[in-house]
Design a protein around this nucleic acid. Sequence first.
DNA 1: TTGTAGGCGTTATCAT
DNA 2: ATGATAACGCCTACAA
Lengths: 342, 342
Amino acid sequence: MITIRDVAREAGVSIATVSRVFNNAEAVATDTRREVRAVATRLGYSPHGTARSLITRRTATIGLILPDLYGEFFSELIRGVDHAVRAQGYHLLVSSSHADRAEVDSAMALMRGRVDGLVVMLPERQQAQVPLVSGRLPLVRLGGAPHNGDADAIVVANRDGARAMVRHLVSLGHTRIGVIAGADANSDADERMSGVRDGLEDAGLGEDALLRVAGDFSEASGFRAAREMLRADPRPTAIFALNDAMAIGALSALRAEGVNVPADIAVAGFDDIPMAQFLDPPLTTVRVDISAMGARAATRVLSHLGNGPSGSGVEIVPTTLMVRRSCGNPGAWSPTIPESLA
Amino acid sequence: MITIRDVAREAGVSIATVSRVFNNAEAVATDTRREVRAVATRLGYSPHGTARSLITRRTATIGLILPDLYGEFFSELIRGVDHAVRAQGYHLLVSSSHADRAEVDSAMALMRGRVDGLVVMLPERQQAQVPLVSGRLPLVRLGGAPHNGDADAIVVANRDGARAMVRHLVSLGHTRIGVIAGADANSDADERMSGVRDGLEDAGLGEDALLRVAGDFSEASGFRAAREMLRADPRPTAIFALNDAMAIGALSALRAEGVNVPADIAVAGFDDIPMAQFLDPPLTTVRVDISAMGARAATRVLSHLGNGPSGSGVEIVPTTLMVRRSCGNPGAWSPTIPESLA
DNA sequence: TTGTAGGCGTTATCAT
DNA sequence: ATGATAACGCCTACAA
């Protein structure tokens, strides 16, 4: 390994001078600077990040802790975080597949001394537990519902999104709506269900307008739920699955039964994954800009590190209603801004 | 910040003893060890990664440099790398959005002293250029075609996969096959096109069996290409798009023209993205296990670091032919192993 | 079994 | 403008 010493010796200067060249270059005479740079390049020297971090007390790295990496959701998320973080000259340390709270805590411990701040997304069902404690590291929690102990958090407007979707369906004339609910103790699912009830209430519709069937966010559960709804009386004219995987399952079930979508039954989803826009049967979804959400979380952490404007508290990421206008024409989606819910 | 000193003082031992407790714990008396652990927990101490790295000369981190993070491809890739890397107790430092070679080189320089090894995927069109040089860091290149200067690389069996698909289509009775080609100077696209010609040659079919239309790997280009093919004479009975995005575009075009898939025209793709399996019109694809590819790259790097069995050179990741057996039944895919191509 | 001390590569402080 | 030197937090011979 070639160190700052080698460069100093070769250039006939002290290591302090070499260091200055690589940091505040102005403080060095032009000739010296040029010579040092030349030697450094010739020797293939570049500063040692770890050693530098030790003395400067900053790693220029943000840690990202995720429950999993499956599907496009996380790639979008990482993309957003990566983008925001790199814009400020930071690196991104990713740690994933943490199924429970103990693993998250150990991942956080492992990151001590390696990162300047943390973005943490907890596994489902672990949201409402003991608050995250990160010592003196800035930490931003991502996803789920807002809860006590959140100093900083970025969450999705699950409730507003579901409410907007129900209002949209009602405005199309649907008065009997099948909702495929999510897993128990899943805060996203709970929030979305609350939004559904809000929407029905807004429209002045009663309990009989809602046909609720349980699901578990899997494609298969959506398939089963939709099949069950077809046998209901009265049969719904619209199906709203509380995530996209279930919506896809529902579409398969409807086609298997020869139901025309959306002429006979409209299908709507809640966008965990951008994939839905490629589906062939028209699917209206509540769209969440995952990438933007990741970027916001990163920006928040960076703000605590003195980069950019400061801020704190819980921030809610808005959702957008996406309606497919035409079929058979790739990319022909147009966004519809949700009606104001004030 | 709470350091090893604090723990030592509080526990009434030397810092050497505390250090030993956290490393080779056996060399410490049971009582001492227990006391130290207790104090450390009470104080919330955990070793400082950076400082430890400096002296041990290992960061326990693998760097992953990617051209982009868009779509499910990269999330699958990261998942594979992360999995392999964590299994050996390593961290993952991700750096992305490197559009050209200069950015890749600078990302590599920035990672010096922060990682023990590198997995690098070059941007398209940059594959055949100057070899990557990483100093003494183990480096594994990912994707594209094998080329000179590759000490270690993991590449996809693009050619074999495309060949297998053509043989499959021919075996179904197709003698006129439309191929939607990929972007110029894209080594993946080139390799796949070669495979197509191999397959036709295997089947003893001549040039007139092939209808080649250019695309650029985008959904829109697949849409246009398929529409063009419908007007060809003789019209193909099967369309093979050299990536999935184009295959999806082709499906849209066929439906817009009222063509029945696969009864009138069969459609096949090449799987960059797992998404394809959720599509409604049956789509046969050459499937690449991206996640496994990432894991292999990571494993290779780790092997140079002394973890696991050693190995080097170019490794080719096989592909699998995926045929949809039935419609309307989610998850009803079954893999077909490609015929031996020896 | 435990403590002492030197050093990992760099930056910051204080001289010159 | 430049140089000598003490940290940064930790690990590891070597000594006790």
